[in-house]
Design a binder for these strands. Structure first.
Length: 220
DNA sequence: TTATAGATTGCCT
DNA sequence: GGCAATCTATAAT
């Protein structure tokens, strides 16, 4: 966890996303979301995802077919689908499967690797003091634990990022592999939905403190 | 044209 | 644990 080297980042190829979203959601765990802006690098490891299966999935935005809002989902794989929800929050997805099929993966939680101060600023929080973080690692959890939170930390909005190709390091937002090893993966029902809620399409890194929906470490 | 639910979060009791 | 905030897409008038 402690040894992140930005020079090892390699963008994920288009083929990575040209598959069943359940496979992509699982394989994205351990990969890195990267934002570059003004010479600064934000990076965070993917630790929680959810798969949405397109027109066959009642919980998916693509269920009713293509609309202006969701058309990115029906396009080529590896592109950002960003939507605005509850009047407050943006959420980031990546399109999967070949053009014409609308599967996607929602990013639910990340573990910050680099640029924590900028993330805190974007979230309207005080910059985390290294000493305080040392004492209570749970402080960083508020930065990127939850789909709305991680989008805010990375400055992700629909006008700015919807439709962006996430497979190109030329872009200011992309997904990469930094060579990190495999992690133990768990699955569960998806969070916050009412339709098709029984399907176990949520995937997360077992035991990772940044997975959403868990209590912050009590004391120890 | 109006109503309502929504792939959430944070603050209040 | 409850609920308001605040915009959008879609359903209902």
């Amino acid at each position: 966890m402690g040894n992140f080297d930005p020079t090892r980042l390699r963008p994920l190829p288009r083929e990575f996303f040209d598959r069943d979203p359940r496979k992509v959601a699982r394989d994205l765990l351990g990969k890195v979301l990267v934002r570059r802006e003004r010479g600064r690098l934000l990076a965070a490891r993917v630790v929680e995802t959810e798969a949405y299966l397109g027109t066959e999935d009642p919980a998916a935005h693509a269920f009713a077919g293509p609309t202006e809002r969701n058309r990115v989902l029906f396009g080529p794989p590896g592109h950002a689908y960003v939507y605005f929800i509850y009047g407050n929050h943006h959420c980031l997805n990546v399109s999967c499967e070949p053009e014409g099929m609308a599967g996607c993966v929602l990013f639910r939680a990340l573990e910050p690797l680099q640029g924590e101060s900028a993330m805190a600023k974007a979230r309207g929080l005080a910059a985390p003091e290294p000493a305080a973080v040392q004492a209570r690692p749970g402080l960083l959890r508020h930065l990127t634990s939850g789909p709305g939170r991680l989008a805010e930390a990375f400055g992700i909005t629909r006008p700015r990022d919807n439709g962006k190709d996430l497979t190109s390091a030329e872009n200011d937002l992309f997904l990469a592999d930094d060579g990190a090893g495999k992690m133990k993966i768990e699955s569960s029902a998806r969070v916050g939905i009412t339709k098709a809620a029984e399907r176990r399409l949520r995937f997360y890194v077992e035991g990772n403190a940044f997975v959403s929906g868990k209590r912050v470490e009590s004391s120890k």
